Computed example of a mutant assay.
Amino acid sequence: MFYLTADGSGLKIDPLSAIVSPRPIAWVSTRGVEGVNLAPYSFFNAVAYAPPQVILASVGSKPDRETGKDSLSNILETGEFCVNIAGYDDREALNQSSAPYPRGVSEIAALGLATEPCRVIACPRLAHAPAALECVLTQHIVLEGAGNHLVIARVEAIHLRDDCLNEGRFDVTRYRPLTRLGYSDFAAIDSVFRMKRPAL
């Protein structure tokens, strides 16, 4: 099969997100003038070490927002957000937090999730998250297409859950990272192997 993306695939659902998978999930907590918000984003990744930076894309819109979604509005308003990393045990709450709650409704409160304050930014983080990244916005780029936005942020501080540390390493097998595939499909990382970078 071959198709030009401008023409569409002819399939029932666009396969792009299934092709580019698995993708890490940023479970983003933000605070704005209307309160606290929590939502998952799978167009997310780390892109640099020094200084540490992440990217996050928000696609689509909400009928009760002029631009983008609640998380994006809060990020643009405050310049801050927290990326909470989700494990397999978080799957139901993470999925529920993607529901179209009205603006001003806290998904954290609605789902009864415990939080702790971040230390550098004025935003809550999920208390049980295996890791949490306190982020400060450095760039906002409006992408081609309706409702497509990219944010680039510097990671100012990192929280690691103590039971996820193993002999000086952050051990993903301790919490089974939750990843996004295509369609309504998710996966948890259950098999981990190491390969050292070869020397010539």
Rank of each mutant, 00 (worst) to 15 (best):
A50T: 12
F81M: 05
G87E: 12
H159I: 00
Y3D: 02
N166M: 10
R174F: 06
L56I: 05
I189D: 03
S42L: 08
D64T: 05
D185L: 15
G168C: 04
F43L: 12
A109F: 00
E116R: 08
T138F: 04
L178A: 13
N37A: 11
E156Q: 13
P198M: 06
R197Q: 08
V20M: 14
L126W: 01
V142N: 15
F81Y: 07
R103F: 05
L4G: 00
Y183C: 07
I75H: 05
D14H: 12
Y183W: 12
P102C: 07
T78I: 13
E167P: 00
L143G: 09
L111K: 02
K69L: 13
Y175S: 03
R180S: 08
G10Y: 13
K196S: 13
V120H: 12
I121T: 06
V120L: 14
V59H: 10
V28R: 04
V192T: 02
I121L: 09
M1L: 04
N84G: 05
P24V: 08
I55D: 04
R31K: 12
A188H: 07
K12F: 04
T138N: 08
L113M: 04
I141C: 14
C123Y: 01
L200M: 00
P51Y: 12
V83L: 11
D89Q: 15
A57I: 00
K12D: 12
P198K: 04
E34A: 14
A57N: 10
T179G: 06
I19Y: 10
R194I: 11
L137I: 07
D90W: 14
V36Q: 02
S61R: 03
L137Q: 09
L160S: 01
F193L: 11
P100Y: 05
L38Y: 01
C123D: 03
P52Y: 04
Y175R: 02
